[in-house]
C-alpha cells in the first residue's frame, strides 16, 4: 500500500546541505500498525511527512495506493492529504476559537461539504472518540487528553486509509497517553486504518505490530 523507494530528503541550511533522510526504502501494507522510532534528528518525522504528502523527497519514489506522490503537484497532494491521510500532532494544533465539533469538521471544509452535513459527520467522529458531551467546548475548556482525542476525531473525519501520528502522547501524562494509544490501536484494529506512529518512547512503540528504528536518516532495524 505504501512503498518508499530509495528516498532521500535534503534541506538547505544556509551554506550547508543537511540530509534528513538518506536513501531509505520501505513497504507498509494496508492495516499495519507501525512505529517509527529513533532519537531526534534521525529522520523519522521527515519520513512521516513524506508519506503524508506534506513534504516531497529530493530523490526516490513514494507510491501510495498506486499513486506516485513524488511527482504530484500541490492540488493532487492536497487532495491526497484531505482524503487519504489523517494527521495527529504532538501539540494537538487545534483552532483556539473553534468548538470541538468545528475543529473536527475543518478537513471537511476543504472537501467542499456544506455546513450542516459537516457538523453531522464531525459529531459522529466525536462520538467515536467518546467526546460527544464536549462537542461545544473550545480547546481551552478541554483537558490535554480530550484535546488529543478531538485531534484524533479530526484525523478520522474524512475516513482516511492512513493515520499519521507524530509523538501523539508527547504532551500527555501517562494515563492520558495510554488512553490515546488505546484509542489509536482500536481504530487500527476495528476500522483497519493503517497507523504510523512516530515516537522515541519505546513503551509506546511496543504497542505497535512493527517497529522501524531509524538513525541518521537511515533505517537501522525493521
Amino acid at each position: 500500500m505504501i512503498k518508499l523507494e530509495n528516498i532521500t530528503r535534503e534541506y538547505r541550511m544556509g551554506e550547508d546541505i543537511v540530509r534528513a533522510v538518506s536513501g531509505i526504502s520501505l513497504e507498509i501494507t494496508e492495516g499495519e500498525f507501525v512505529a517509527l522510532v529513533g532519537p531526534s534528528g534521525s529522520g523519522k518525522s521527515t519520513t512521516m511527512h513524506i508519506i503524508g504528502g506534506l513534504d516531497t523527497p529530493t530523490s526516490g519514489r513514494v507510491i501510495v495506493d498506486g499513486h506516485d506522490l513524488s511527482r504530484a503537484g500541490d492540488r493532487e497532494l492536497s487532495r491526497y492529504r484531505n482524503e487519504k491521510i489523517g494527521f495527529v500532532f504532538q501539540a494537538f494544533n487545534l483552532h483556539p476559537t473553534y468548538t470541538a465539533t468545528e475543529n473536527v469538521a475543518l478537513p471537511l471544509i476543504f472537501s467542499g461539504i456544506g455546513y450542516s452535513r459537516r457538523m453531522k459527520i464531525a459529531a459522529e467522529a466525536l462520538e467515536t472518540v467518546g467526546l460527544s458531551d464536549r462537542a461545544s467546548h473550545r480547546p481551552n475548556q478541554l483537558s490535554g487528553g480530550e484535546r488529543q482525542r478531538v485531534s484524533i476525531a479530526r484525523a478520522l473525519v474524512t475516513q482516511p486509509k492512513i493515520i499519521l501520528a507524530d509523538e501523539p502522547t508527547g504532551n500527555l501524562d501517562s494515563k492520558n497517553g495510554q488512553l490515546v494509544m488505546e484509542l489509536l490501536s482500536r481504530l487500527n484494529k476495528e476500522k483497519g486504518i493503517t497507523l504510523i506512529i512516530v515516537t522515541h518512547n519505546m513503551e509506546i512503540a511496543a504497542v505497535a505490530g512493527r517497529i522501524i528504528k531509524m538513525r541518521d536518516g537511515k533505517i537501522v532495524e525493521d
Binding site: 503524508g52 506534506l54 500541490d74 492540488r75 492536497s78 487532495r79 492529504r81 484531505n82 482524503e83 494527521f87 500532532f89 494544533n93 483552532h95 475543518l106 478537513p107 476543504f110 472537501s111 479530526r154 474524512t158
Partner: peptide
C-alpha cells in the same frame, strides 16, 4: 502560521 500549516495538512491547497 501554525493554523495555516494545519489547514494545509488537512487538505487546503495553496490556491485555497
Amino acid at each position: 502560521t501554525r493554523e495555516i500549516g494545519v489547514m494545509k495538512a488537512v487538505g487546503a491547497t495553496r490556491g485555497t
